[in-house]
Design a protein around this nucleic acid. Structure first.
Lengths: 207, 207
DNA sequence: AATTGTGAAATTGTTCACAGCA
DNA sequence: TGCTGTGAACAATTTCACAATT
């Protein structure tokens, strides 16, 4: 496969959402022009992105909504389910457990961990919270493929180190911390404060 | 000011975090080389980013940690406080109210709204939850500068329309929905499912 | 006639390399 | 000497423009 940029992957996610919507509204075909309009992009951008993975359209006609949706799902790995463990059942962690969008896209939270004795052993939305002490052992025994980190910032690196030790290669981090992982591990960090900083920058600089 | 790219703003946020840390650890100066090493960038990148806003360093010496931190804070608008309203006190909304990092950076959540009669009038972490029906009126009366949307996806557009109507120009959206706003309004959407999609793409394609 | 897929051109973003300064 | 600030070179990404196809 040719080089796929970070931004292309993001746009694929966006196309996927639009296609789900269009499908629900009964659209059968869609052109790059229409997709571009909805996402505020150029038609050429849409076609370039898609052409990186194959020729999904029909000249003169456009793309079949259902077919393109499924192609993108397969590219993004949304045509299978992923087993996810979540570490840190605090405010953010609890919100994520209840976040419907994850399950809808095949990300199933199967294990919960915390270090709070009052939480360990309790049933949270149908899952027994385990002790983070047993993290490595439990992750190794399970078939978990992804881990979500929702622990306080000062504990995040330590927890991530253990997750990596357990052989997990994909981590989504919500702790506002500068986490280091080996090269072969994919780590993405969502920092909500940074998003607000972006807005305050925009507001100040009156873009 | 010259054109400041999206990625430059993101990197400024990252530098800011590093500088806070370095300051706490007692560092007085830092070079572009050191900053670059920590953030896995090139020294030239760091210097280019900073030079967009002025000459903050000293040749032969580097940057003064405290001074650079304050310069970046001022660029990002973190040297003042912002009054924020949060709409939707569900799982995600509650987590955001408790998110310490916001207050630390001067983003103060001053108003809460919900449409659930059982929540309206209740005190949540020191703030009385108001009826979303009064959104426009309340926002106009208040000195709110930013709004965070944490309502279900199917209500998000309607709520955003009202927020815009109330004259708010910066919105951070956590609803997994394709929101449209007029050109002069800054909207950022955090879609947590998209982040996982990025990871599953990476895992499938064994980058 | 409409729209894709794609090389080529234009634009944007990053790195190099070095003059200039502490 | 060491490190910044920056124009020039390079690389990546986006847009253009058009042949190919239905």
């Amino acid at each position: 496969m040719r080089k796929v940029s970070e931004s292309t992957v993001k746009r694929l996610s966006r196309y996927y959402r639009v296609l789900r919507l269009l499908e629900k509204e009964g659209y059968v075909t869609v052109s790059s022009k229409e997709l571009a309009k909805i996402e505020k992009l150029t038609p050429a951008q849409v076609r370039k992105d898609l052409s990186l993975f194959g020729s999904f359209g029909t000249r003169g006609l456009g793309y079949k909504v259902l077919e393109l949706k499924e192609k993108i799902a397969s590219i993004l790995g949304l045509d299978k389910t992923w087993k996810v463990a979540l570490i840190g059942v605090g405010n953010v962690g609890s919100a994520l457990v209840s976040y419907k969008e994850f399950a809808k896209q095949g990300f199933l939270i199967k294990l919960l961990f915390d270090n709070d004795q009052r939480k360990i052993g309790k049933n949270h939305k149908g899952i027994i919270i385990k002790d983070v002490k047993d993290l490595v052992k439990e992750l190794k025994e399970s078939k978990i493929e992804m881990v979500i980190i929702a622990v306080p910032a000062d504990q995040a690196q330590k927890v991530v180190d253990q997750v990596v030790k357990a052989g997990i290669r994909t981590i989504l981090n919500f702790a506002p911390a500068n986490i280091k992982v080996p090269d072969q591990v994919f780590l993405r960090t969502v920092n909500m404060a940074m998003e607000l900083e972006h807005l305050s920058f925009a507001l100040i600089n009156q873009i």
